[in-house]
Design a protein around this nucleic acid. Structure first.
Lengths: 363, 363
DNA sequence: CAACAGCATGCAAACGTTTGCATACATAAA
DNA sequence: TTTATGTATGCAAACGTTTGCATGCTGTTG
């Protein structure tokens, strides 16, 4: 672009012999401009292929019409679906989205926050990195009263609006299901507890055990980043022990699938020898043999809610001064062969967003 | 933001009793500004938490530092990985990325082109929809001499810079592999030929058949959008016919996996009864039972190349006036159990980008 | 006929930067 | 002493919009 001269409303104005204000108003369909003038302006704009300069307008209005999105990475099922949902919803409202990946690096996250602020985004949606502990780089948004919405992963001790899947219930139902299937030695492979989602799932796990009066066996609970490699190592530990678990609850599907891989190689039968459940209902989980029981998180719903909340904040339907909004989206256990069940979808009681944690009573 | 007053370089200037130009230059580390002044400016900027306004700078410079990306959808393995690569590479060069999804709708694509133009992006990277036939909405970019790079899906008859996987070779090697495995009745499930990638894969398929002197059997070649549902329907047709194929070459992995699903339900053994190959090497393809032979497209490489090409265009390392650049990235056949082979990765002859179609000689 | 309303338009400032061209001073070379 | 050279800074225009506040006109009402 740079040196390429632009055709501006000023050019239209001089060509027509009117002022720039008139042209500007004509283009935005202002009621005080005569239909005739509007017609001629549109004609000329068409003729010379005039293009609105959003940059100039943004500067003048202090409104960029752009929302920022920062997430750890895009190239996985859950995050990319959330991003899709957010983008689609924002587009409905005439907003653009600027997506940035932090690659799970807190330093990069911080840089991106500043870049997006410099671009004067009107709002920021964030799923923070696994390792962000200092959230002060977000302060500038609060200070400038720019809406800030977190989803999925977010700070535990930082006041902000939040949208989250119901991880507690997900962990609870997942564990309960295994208990109902008769399992009593349920291993748990979790991410680091510093991250809210893993903490919640773990608490669900603990409470389900409690309900069945099964004591916690700390020897079969693991916390580490949930990659395939780590999962395989953990399998070594689990299956070299003296007393084997009768089930494994993995906190993501990558891990569950790695367990499946390990089991196949070592002739451990799933679900006959060990039952298995995952989390997230990644598309991969339903095509393995056996298919993996998992927890659907409705990523599209999460994204939709986050974007809607952002729009409400921008339109002052929710006052910033009010308390911070916390939306919990429902989850749903998808039972599959890996936990010894035929696939059955449980229709949730309530399709709507639950206002908080709702633990379904189990009969 | 809107009414929130901003702290600007003007404020710094008056507070210091110098001119705004001095402050501006100090902040950009201009050599004519004394170290002392620079120091005091930085101090004040720090103290009042001054934030650069990229909007204003962009307007003044006619440089937005932003690149646009339009793609059909984000929520799949290939596109999200490409987007990740593009974003990471651009970030290295100090550029921001604005990602927009067309949801495979030509109308939305057109709108997004205009929106991104209005935001004065400095370049545009595009993978067009399956149905875009009129590409005139991209003309404005050529006319304004703003770099435009297509990747993956692009217009056949529209002059532009392009980055593409080597679909011809992918189709050729895929088919050749099945022929080498002894198959002679190879069904082909392709996307619409209006799209360049499917056309190339189909041509590869045809040429491989020709090499083995196998006549084309049009009764087992199918063209439709490559969804699971369509694939299942096509399976009905294929397997209700009198003479069954001995192999199926599906043009994406979603289709291949659907074939697998159909086969399992109907007790057709893969690879014993029918061999199967897919395309794209989606993460799902390696975890099915049997794992599906597929073609790795190195999406990260594709994104990286597209972003690098864009940077070169922007820095005039490649003159716009030169002929259009066309980069072909290599592909690699990944042999798996679905085509009767243990997994073996063929090390490609040349890791570098091939300048054009390279058909590996087959011994 | 004066006063007013309503309509269509224009003026000019503002948004926050950047930068080419002065200017002012000090020092060095002729 | 004059002229050149360099250093640190300031002036003011420009980027392309939008918008509050006039202004001038036509037609209506009292």
């Amino acid at each position: 672009m740079s040196k390429q001269p632009q055709y501006t409303i000023k050019d239209i104005a001089t060509e027509m012999g009117v002022s720039v204000s008139t042209v500007s108003r004509a283009l935005s369909d202002h009621p005080h401009i005569s239909e005739e003038t509007k017609g001629r302006v549109r004609e000329l704009a068409e003729k010379y292929d005039y293009r609105h300069n959003a940059l100039a307008a943004s500067l003048r209005n202090s409104r960029s019409n752009t929302i920022g999105l920062i997430l750890p990475r895009l190239s996985q099922y859950f995050p990319s679906t959330v991003a899709t949902a957010i983008q689609n919803k924002l587009h409905e409202y005439g907003y653009n989205l600027m997506i940035c990946q932090s690659n799970d690096s807190p330093a990069l996250e911080k840089e991106l926050v500043n870049v997006l602020y410099a671009s004067r985004v009107e709002g920021l949606i964030v799923s923070s990195t696994l390792y962000t502990s200092d959230f002060s780089h977000f302060d500038i948004f609060a200070k400038s009263k720019i809406p800030l919405v977190f989803y999925d992963r977010f700070p535990k001790n930082y006041e902000a609006h939040k949208v989250q899947g119901d991880d507690y219930t997900g962990g609870y139902q997942n564990t309960l299901h295994l208990l109902q299937q008769g399992c009593r030695r349920i291993a748990h492979i979790s991410g680091p507890l510093t991250c809210n989602i893993y903490e919640d799932r773990y608490n669900g796990y603990l409470d389900a055990l409690k309900k069945y009066e099964v004591p916690l066996n700390e020897g079969i609970v693991f916390f580490h980043e949930l990659t395939r490699e780590n999962a395989l190592k953990t399998c070594e530990v689990i299956f070299s022990g003296s007393s084997l678990p009768d089930a494994i609850f993995a906190c993501n599907d990558t891990t569950a699938i790695a367990v499946l891989e390990y089991a196949r190689k070592h002739h451990i039968r799933i679900p006959q020898d060990v039952m298995l459940t995952g989390y997230s209902n990644d598309p991969r989980s339903e095509i393995t043999e056996p298919a993996v029981t998992s927890v659907e998180q409705f990523p599209y719903e999460v994204g939709d809610q986050a974007a809607t909340l952002m729009m409400n904040l921008l339109r002052h339907k929710i006052k910033q001064e009010d308390n911070y909004v916390s939306i919990t989206t429902p989850v749903e256990l998808i039972r599959r062969a890996s936990s010894g069940t035929a696939e059955t979808k449980v229709v949730p009681d309530d399709k709507a967003v639950s206002p908080g944690r709702q633990i379904k009573a189990v009969s």
